[in-house]
Simulated assay, not measured.
Amino acid sequence: MSCRARRGLLIVDAKTPAVLVLPGPVAKDAVAGLCAEVRAMLAGGTAGTVVCDVAGIGPPGLAAVDLLARLEVTARRAGGRIRLRDPDPALLALLRFVGLRLQMEGEAEEREPALGVEEEVEPGQPAV
Rank of each mutant, 00 (worst) to 15 (best):
A55T: 11
L9R: 08
R4M: 07
A108M: 04
A55W: 02
V51M: 03
V50Y: 08
P59M: 12
E37S: 12
R96H: 08
Q103A: 06
P113R: 04
A5Y: 10
S2I: 05
L71A: 07
C35W: 00
K15G: 04
K15H: 14
L91P: 08
R6M: 15
R76H: 13
R111D: 01
P25D: 06
I57F: 02
R81L: 11
E118K: 05
M104C: 13
V98C: 04
A14M: 07
G33T: 10
A5T: 11
T74N: 02
A43Q: 13
A43Y: 06
G80V: 04
R4P: 13
T49G: 00
L20I: 15
S2K: 04
L10D: 10
V51S: 01
V121C: 01
P89F: 10
V98D: 03
T49F: 00
P126T: 12
V73W: 10
A14G: 11
A30W: 02
G79I: 07
A14F: 12
A127W: 06
G79K: 08
C3T: 09
A64N: 12
R6H: 13
S2P: 12
V54T: 03
G8D: 14
A127T: 07
S2T: 12
R76W: 07
V50P: 06
A30I: 00
E107D: 15
L91C: 03
T74V: 11
K15M: 12
A78F: 02
E107Y: 03
A108Y: 00
C3S: 11
V54G: 09
L68G: 01
R81C: 10
G79E: 03
A64C: 15
G24K: 14
P25K: 05
R101W: 03
V21Y: 14
G33P: 08
V117N: 01
V54H: 01
L20C: 15
V121F: 01
V31R: 05
K15C: 14
I82V: 14
D88C: 13
P126I: 11
E119I: 05
P23N: 09
L42I: 10
L84C: 02
P89D: 09
V12D: 01
K28V: 05
L71C: 04
P17G: 11
E72L: 12
G106Y: 01
T74L: 02
L9Y: 08
V38Y: 05
L95W: 09
E122A: 11
D29S: 08
D29Y: 00
V26S: 09
A27W: 01
A55V: 03
Q103I: 00
L102Q: 09
G24R: 15
A93S: 12
R4G: 10
L92P: 00
